[in-house]
Design a binder for these strands. Structure first.
Length: 279
DNA sequence: ATACCGACCTGTCAGC
DNA sequence: TGCTGACAGGTCGGTA
Protein backbone atom coordinates (compact mmCIF):
# COMPACT_ATOMS: atom_id res chain seq x y z
CA UNK A 1 0.00 0.00 0.00
CA UNK A 2 2.07 2.79 1.28
CA UNK A 3 5.05 4.60 -0.09
CA UNK A 4 6.50 7.83 1.23
CA UNK A 5 3.54 10.13 0.41
CA UNK A 6 0.99 7.75 1.92
CA UNK A 7 3.08 7.21 5.06
CA UNK A 8 3.66 10.96 5.35
CA UNK A 9 -0.10 11.58 5.11
CA UNK A 10 -0.82 8.92 7.74
CA UNK A 11 1.88 10.27 10.03
CA UNK A 12 0.48 13.80 9.83
CA UNK A 13 -2.95 12.45 10.75
CA UNK A 14 -1.56 10.44 13.64
CA UNK A 15 0.50 13.36 14.92
CA UNK A 16 -2.65 15.46 14.94
CA UNK A 17 -4.82 12.82 16.58
CA UNK A 18 -2.68 10.86 19.01
CA UNK A 19 0.36 12.98 19.87
CA UNK A 20 0.13 13.96 23.52
CA UNK A 21 -2.16 11.04 24.28
CA UNK A 22 -1.13 8.23 26.62
CA UNK A 23 -1.34 4.53 25.86
CA UNK A 24 -3.14 2.87 28.77
CA UNK A 25 -3.22 -0.73 27.65
CA UNK A 26 -2.39 -2.84 24.64
CA UNK A 27 -3.95 -5.94 23.11
CA UNK A 28 -1.93 -7.92 20.60
CA UNK A 29 -3.39 -10.69 18.44
CA UNK A 30 -2.03 -14.20 18.22
CA UNK A 31 -0.45 -13.89 14.76
CA UNK A 32 3.33 -13.71 14.97
CA UNK A 33 3.87 -12.58 11.40
CA UNK A 34 3.51 -8.83 11.98
CA UNK A 35 5.76 -8.77 15.05
CA UNK A 36 9.46 -8.09 14.75
CA UNK A 37 9.81 -7.63 18.49
CA UNK A 38 8.18 -10.09 20.93
CA UNK A 39 4.57 -9.28 21.76
CA UNK A 40 5.41 -8.97 25.45
CA UNK A 41 8.13 -6.43 24.69
CA UNK A 42 5.85 -4.35 22.51
CA UNK A 43 3.02 -4.38 25.04
CA UNK A 44 5.29 -3.64 28.01
CA UNK A 45 7.00 -0.79 26.16
CA UNK A 46 3.82 0.89 24.95
CA UNK A 47 1.74 0.61 28.11
CA UNK A 48 1.85 3.70 30.28
CA UNK A 49 3.80 5.72 27.72
CA UNK A 50 2.91 9.11 26.34
CA UNK A 51 3.13 9.60 22.58
CA UNK A 52 5.48 12.57 22.37
CA UNK A 53 5.65 12.75 18.58
CA UNK A 54 4.80 10.77 15.46
CA UNK A 55 7.14 11.09 12.52
CA UNK A 56 8.35 9.24 9.44
CA UNK A 57 11.62 7.64 8.37
CA UNK A 58 11.36 6.36 4.80
CA UNK A 59 8.28 4.13 4.81
CA UNK A 60 8.42 3.62 8.59
CA UNK A 61 6.11 5.31 11.08
CA UNK A 62 8.01 6.27 14.23
CA UNK A 63 6.21 6.89 17.52
CA UNK A 64 8.46 8.64 20.04
CA UNK A 65 7.33 7.44 23.45
CA UNK A 66 8.13 8.83 26.85
CA UNK A 67 7.31 7.81 30.37
CA UNK A 68 4.74 10.11 31.98
CA UNK A 69 6.33 12.89 33.99
CA UNK A 70 6.21 12.34 37.73
CA UNK A 71 6.94 14.50 40.73
CA UNK A 72 9.84 12.41 41.89
CA UNK A 73 13.15 13.03 40.22
CA UNK A 74 14.75 9.81 39.23
CA UNK A 75 17.98 10.31 37.32
CA UNK A 76 17.42 7.16 35.30
CA UNK A 77 13.82 7.91 34.47
CA UNK A 78 14.38 9.99 31.36
CA UNK A 79 16.77 7.49 29.93
CA UNK A 80 14.74 4.39 30.66
CA UNK A 81 11.46 6.10 29.98
CA UNK A 82 11.98 6.86 26.29
CA UNK A 83 11.55 4.40 23.47
CA UNK A 84 10.39 4.25 19.88
CA UNK A 85 7.61 2.18 18.42
CA UNK A 86 8.28 1.49 14.75
CA UNK A 87 5.46 0.54 12.37
CA UNK A 88 6.02 -0.54 8.77
CA UNK A 89 2.74 -0.94 6.91
CA UNK A 90 3.97 -3.40 4.29
CA UNK A 91 1.47 -3.65 1.45
CA UNK A 92 -1.87 -3.53 3.21
CA UNK A 93 -1.20 -2.25 6.72
CA UNK A 94 -3.35 0.55 8.18
CA UNK A 95 -3.33 2.57 11.38
CA UNK A 96 -6.85 3.35 12.52
CA UNK A 97 -7.87 5.85 15.19
CA UNK A 98 -11.42 5.17 16.33
CA UNK A 99 -13.89 4.97 19.17
CA UNK A 100 -13.82 1.75 21.24
CA UNK A 101 -17.32 0.96 20.04
CA UNK A 102 -16.19 0.78 16.41
CA UNK A 103 -16.40 -2.72 15.00
CA UNK A 104 -13.12 -4.60 15.20
CA UNK A 105 -12.14 -5.29 11.63
CA UNK A 106 -10.87 -8.62 10.47
CA UNK A 107 -7.05 -8.77 10.51
CA UNK A 108 -6.72 -6.40 13.47
CA UNK A 109 -3.40 -7.30 15.10
CA UNK A 110 -2.99 -4.63 17.74
CA UNK A 111 -5.28 -2.35 19.71
CA UNK A 112 -3.91 0.40 21.95
CA UNK A 113 -6.38 1.99 24.35
CA UNK A 114 -5.67 5.68 24.79
CA UNK A 115 -6.26 7.90 27.80
CA UNK A 116 -8.49 10.11 25.65
CA UNK A 117 -10.88 7.17 25.36
CA UNK A 118 -10.11 6.41 21.74
CA UNK A 119 -8.25 3.46 20.32
CA UNK A 120 -5.33 3.19 17.94
CA UNK A 121 -5.51 -0.03 15.90
CA UNK A 122 -3.16 -1.75 13.51
CA UNK A 123 -4.96 -3.68 10.76
CA UNK A 124 -3.13 -5.67 8.09
CA UNK A 125 -4.72 -8.44 5.98
CA UNK A 126 -1.57 -9.62 4.24
CA UNK A 127 0.63 -9.28 7.29
CA UNK A 128 3.60 -7.91 5.41
CA UNK A 129 3.61 -5.05 7.88
CA UNK A 130 5.98 -5.10 10.85
CA UNK A 131 5.84 -3.79 14.39
CA UNK A 132 8.99 -3.33 16.43
CA UNK A 133 10.52 -1.50 19.38
CA UNK A 134 13.71 0.50 19.41
CA UNK A 135 15.38 2.14 22.35
CA UNK A 136 16.22 5.37 20.55
CA UNK A 137 17.56 6.87 17.35
CA UNK A 138 15.92 4.47 14.91
CA UNK A 139 17.62 4.70 11.52
CA UNK A 140 16.51 2.46 8.66
CA UNK A 141 19.43 3.58 6.48
CA UNK A 142 19.24 5.40 3.17
CA UNK A 143 18.60 9.10 2.61
CA UNK A 144 15.32 11.01 2.52
CA UNK A 145 14.47 11.88 -1.10
CA UNK A 146 12.97 15.22 -0.10
CA UNK A 147 16.13 16.22 1.72
CA UNK A 148 18.93 14.88 -0.46
CA UNK A 149 20.96 17.37 -2.49
CA UNK A 150 21.45 16.85 -6.20
CA UNK A 151 25.12 16.07 -5.65
CA UNK A 152 24.41 13.37 -3.09
CA UNK A 153 21.57 12.01 -5.19
CA UNK A 154 23.86 11.50 -8.16
CA UNK A 155 26.50 9.91 -5.92
CA UNK A 156 23.99 7.32 -4.69
CA UNK A 157 23.53 5.82 -8.15
CA UNK A 158 26.69 6.67 -10.06
CA UNK A 159 28.37 3.68 -11.62
CA UNK A 160 25.83 1.07 -10.56
CA UNK A 161 25.07 -1.60 -13.10
CA UNK A 162 21.61 -2.28 -11.74
CA UNK A 163 18.57 -0.98 -13.63
CA UNK A 164 17.79 2.57 -12.53
CA UNK A 165 14.37 1.54 -11.28
CA UNK A 166 15.83 -1.19 -9.07
CA UNK A 167 18.20 1.41 -7.65
CA UNK A 168 15.31 3.79 -6.93
CA UNK A 169 13.51 1.00 -5.06
CA UNK A 170 16.58 0.15 -2.98
CA UNK A 171 15.72 1.53 0.45
CA UNK A 172 19.36 1.46 1.55
CA UNK A 173 20.08 4.16 -1.04
CA UNK A 174 16.96 6.31 -1.20
CA UNK A 175 14.30 5.57 1.39
CA UNK A 176 10.58 5.92 0.74
CA UNK A 177 10.24 5.53 -3.03
CA UNK A 178 8.17 2.48 -4.02
CA UNK A 179 6.75 1.03 -7.21
CA UNK A 180 4.28 3.80 -8.08
CA UNK A 181 6.56 6.75 -7.48
CA UNK A 182 9.57 5.08 -9.10
CA UNK A 183 7.55 4.63 -12.32
CA UNK A 184 6.08 8.13 -12.17
CA UNK A 185 9.46 9.75 -11.48
CA UNK A 186 11.15 7.90 -14.33
CA UNK A 187 8.39 8.95 -16.70
CA UNK A 188 8.81 12.61 -15.83
CA UNK A 189 12.56 12.32 -16.22
CA UNK A 190 12.21 10.56 -19.59
CA UNK A 191 14.21 7.51 -18.52
CA UNK A 192 13.19 3.89 -19.14
CA UNK A 193 13.07 1.72 -16.01
CA UNK A 194 15.52 -0.87 -17.40
CA UNK A 195 18.31 1.59 -18.17
CA UNK A 196 21.46 0.79 -16.19
CA UNK A 197 22.10 3.45 -13.56
CA UNK A 198 25.64 3.70 -14.93
CA UNK A 199 24.22 4.64 -18.34
CA UNK A 200 22.18 7.56 -17.02
CA UNK A 201 23.80 10.89 -17.84
CA UNK A 202 24.53 13.62 -15.35
CA UNK A 203 21.86 15.77 -16.94
CA UNK A 204 19.29 12.98 -16.69
CA UNK A 205 20.17 12.44 -13.04
CA UNK A 206 19.60 16.12 -12.48
CA UNK A 207 16.17 15.77 -14.06
CA UNK A 208 15.44 12.59 -12.10
CA UNK A 209 16.37 14.28 -8.82
CA UNK A 210 13.87 17.02 -9.63
CA UNK A 211 11.20 14.54 -10.81
CA UNK A 212 11.36 12.38 -7.72
CA UNK A 213 10.93 15.34 -5.41
CA UNK A 214 8.23 16.89 -7.55
CA UNK A 215 6.21 13.67 -7.71
CA UNK A 216 6.51 13.03 -3.97
CA UNK A 217 5.56 16.61 -3.09
CA UNK A 218 2.55 16.62 -5.40
CA UNK A 219 1.44 13.24 -4.04
CA UNK A 220 1.73 14.41 -0.44
CA UNK A 221 -0.30 17.50 -1.31
CA UNK A 222 -3.07 15.22 -2.64
CA UNK A 223 -2.95 12.85 0.32
CA UNK A 224 -1.19 10.01 -1.51
CA UNK A 225 -2.46 7.47 -4.05
CA UNK A 226 -5.47 5.27 -3.30
CA UNK A 227 -5.10 2.42 -5.75
CA UNK A 228 -7.28 -0.17 -4.05
CA UNK A 229 -7.71 0.21 -0.34
CA UNK A 230 -5.36 2.85 0.98
CA UNK A 231 -6.83 5.31 3.47
CA UNK A 232 -5.09 7.66 5.89
CA UNK A 233 -5.44 7.77 9.68
CA UNK A 234 -8.76 9.58 9.29
CA UNK A 235 -10.08 6.97 6.86
CA UNK A 236 -9.80 9.39 3.93
CA UNK A 237 -8.63 8.36 0.49
CA UNK A 238 -5.86 10.11 -1.41
CA UNK A 239 -6.22 11.61 -4.87
CA UNK A 240 -2.82 11.30 -6.51
CA UNK A 241 -3.93 8.17 -8.40
CA UNK A 242 -5.82 10.59 -10.66
CA UNK A 243 -2.48 12.16 -11.57
CA UNK A 244 -0.68 8.94 -12.47
CA UNK A 245 0.81 9.19 -15.94
CA UNK A 246 2.05 5.61 -16.31
CA UNK A 247 1.43 3.50 -13.21
CA UNK A 248 -1.54 1.19 -13.75
CA UNK A 249 -2.13 2.56 -17.27
CA UNK A 250 -0.90 -0.32 -19.45
CA UNK A 251 -2.33 -0.01 -22.96
CA UNK A 252 -3.80 3.43 -22.29
CA UNK A 253 -2.55 6.43 -24.28
CA UNK A 254 0.37 8.43 -22.91
CA UNK A 255 -0.94 11.76 -21.62
CA UNK A 256 1.88 13.53 -23.44
CA UNK A 257 2.22 11.78 -26.81
CA UNK A 258 -0.66 9.31 -27.07
CA UNK A 259 1.53 6.21 -27.42
CA UNK A 260 0.23 3.14 -25.57
CA UNK A 261 1.82 2.74 -22.14
CA UNK A 262 3.77 -0.49 -21.76
CA UNK A 263 4.11 -2.79 -18.78
CA UNK A 264 7.16 -4.98 -18.21
CA UNK A 265 8.21 -7.00 -15.19
CA UNK A 266 11.45 -5.85 -13.58
CA UNK A 267 12.76 -7.35 -10.35
CA UNK A 268 9.38 -9.01 -9.95
CA UNK A 269 7.50 -5.73 -10.01
CA UNK A 270 5.21 -4.32 -12.68
CA UNK A 271 6.94 -1.43 -14.36
CA UNK A 272 5.11 1.04 -16.58
CA UNK A 273 6.59 3.41 -19.14
CA UNK A 274 5.95 5.26 -22.36
CA UNK A 275 8.19 3.86 -25.12
CA UNK A 276 8.07 7.21 -26.92
CA UNK A 277 8.72 9.65 -24.07
CA UNK A 278 11.21 7.50 -22.17
CA UNK A 279 14.57 6.47 -23.59
C1' DA B 1 28.22 -6.78 -6.35
C1' DT B 2 24.03 -7.99 -8.80
C1' DA B 3 19.84 -10.01 -10.61
C1' DC B 4 16.40 -13.02 -10.65
C1' DC B 5 13.11 -15.90 -8.03
C1' DG B 6 10.35 -17.58 -4.55
C1' DA B 7 8.61 -16.84 -0.02
C1' DC B 8 5.91 -14.45 3.14
C1' DC B 9 0.05 -13.68 3.34
C1' DT B 10 -4.89 -12.53 2.04
C1' DG B 11 -8.09 -10.52 -1.06
C1' DT B 12 -10.01 -9.23 -5.45
C1' DC B 13 -11.06 -9.45 -10.08
C1' DA B 14 -11.19 -11.25 -14.88
C1' DG B 15 -12.09 -15.15 -17.54
C1' DC B 16 -13.99 -19.47 -18.36
C1' DT C 1 -22.29 -19.83 -9.23
C1' DG C 2 -17.79 -21.27 -8.66
C1' DC C 3 -13.15 -22.46 -9.83
C1' DT C 4 -8.40 -20.88 -11.33
C1' DG C 5 -4.86 -17.88 -12.13
C1' DA C 6 -2.89 -13.40 -12.19
C1' DC C 7 -2.01 -9.62 -9.61
C1' DA C 8 -1.48 -6.20 -5.61
C1' DG C 9 1.49 0.00 -2.59
C1' DG C 10 7.05 -4.29 0.30
C1' DT C 11 11.03 -6.73 1.84
C1' DC C 12 14.06 -10.71 2.66
C1' DG C 13 16.99 -14.58 1.76
C1' DG C 14 18.89 -17.95 -1.39
C1' DT C 15 21.19 -18.98 -5.59
C1' DA C 16 23.68 -18.41 -9.78
Amino acid sequence: MPELPEVETIVRGLERRVAGDTIESVWIGSRKQPLKSPAATIAATLEGKRVARVHRAGKHIVFDLQAPTTNSRKPAASKNGSAQWIVHLGMTGRMVVCEPAAEIEKHTHLIAKLASGRELRFVDPRMFGKLSIHREGFDPGGVEPLEVSEENFVQLFRGRKTPIKSALLNQKLLRGVGNIYADESLFRAGIRPRRRAAAVTRQEFSKLHRSVREVLREAIALGGSSVSDYVDADGEEGFFQLEHRVYGREGEPCRVCGTAIRRVVLAGRSSHYCPQCQK
